[in-house]
Design a protein around this nucleic acid. Structure first.
Lengths: 143, 143
DNA sequence: TATGCTGTTATATATAACTATAACACTAGC
DNA sequence: GCTAGTGTTATAGTTATATATAACAGCATA
């Protein structure tokens, strides 16, 4: 059990523990398409490159990419690479909006209500200000 | 292969596929505490009852409950049950707020921006109206 | 004591996610 | 042809999640 260690990557601060990596890979590409970083016809970063850069198994990246193929967002050309399909962004703008509104937002909204979070707090947090609850509980003094 | 089937429950519409059941069990109890459905000193529904009601393995429920014990939100008394600790709600209001604002909200906010969702759409969806993109709402401009 | 609730532990198994390593298949450029 | 870059498949092993089944341990009460 100890010989050939199976050690988790120290580099996975990049990854969210609450979701499989391959789905996060998929979501990252989706975000890049929506943000216009990847345009239609563009090649995706190669499976091996991404795997190396993020210290992840190539198969895991491939699995994420395959989901995009199944969603008809990208096309795979053996020996050449994977490429963003035409119409990918529009397809996403429709699909992801609906998916978010139906599957995620209701739960999120309930949580916000439950925690009594105000729009002000949310906007502040979104702006990058990780403000502590303003009373005590502040021991991270970096001078 | 077919003999002693290992079949997934048909009843798990109750459960979200994107997160382990035991964590959803934990989150449900947390929600009940925050909502005041479960007050301090109250007993949690028994492991076996929950398991039966939701058609889930008792061990899975126990695992979710154990997380609550580890978070010092509930206390386990062998032979009697598990009980909400004093101060549980306050502890949650601080902890869960911070956790949400730091770990979840930034990503969610980015997604909302990316999809160009307006406050109106979000409020509508939260109100339960799972309405497909209406034709009239196409000309919305960000203010 | 006996019964019937609680939480808890022990075995064994199934499936999904991730990994390491290696090989195969295709394309482009030298 | 050779090589280096793509995607793809194959084998095998680890960990996490969830299951089925059974037993153990403590408490309350008739």
């Amino acid at each position: 059990m100890s010989g050939k260690g199976y050690v988790k990557n120290p580099m996975d601060r990049e990854w969210n523990d609450s979701q499989p990596i391959y789905r996060q890979v998929r979501d990252r590409v989706v975000a890049m398409i929506l943000d216009g970083v990847l345009k239609e016809g563009d090649p995706l970063p190669s499976v091996r490159n991404v795997a190396a850069e993020y210290r992840v198994n190539p198969l895991t990246v491939l699995k994420g990419y395959q989901e995009l193929v199944d969603e008809q967002l990208v096309e795979s050309r053996r020996g050449r690479g994977m490429f963003i399909n035409a119409g990918a962004r529009n397809l996403l703008l429709r699909g992801e909006r609906q998916k978010f509104l139906v599957e995620q937002w209701p739960t999120i909204h309930a949580t916000i209500q439950r925690l009594g979070l105000t729009p002000e707090e949310l906007l502040e947090a979104a702006a990058g200000k990780t403000r502590p609850p303003s009373d005590a509980a502040e021991e991270k003094k970096k001078s």
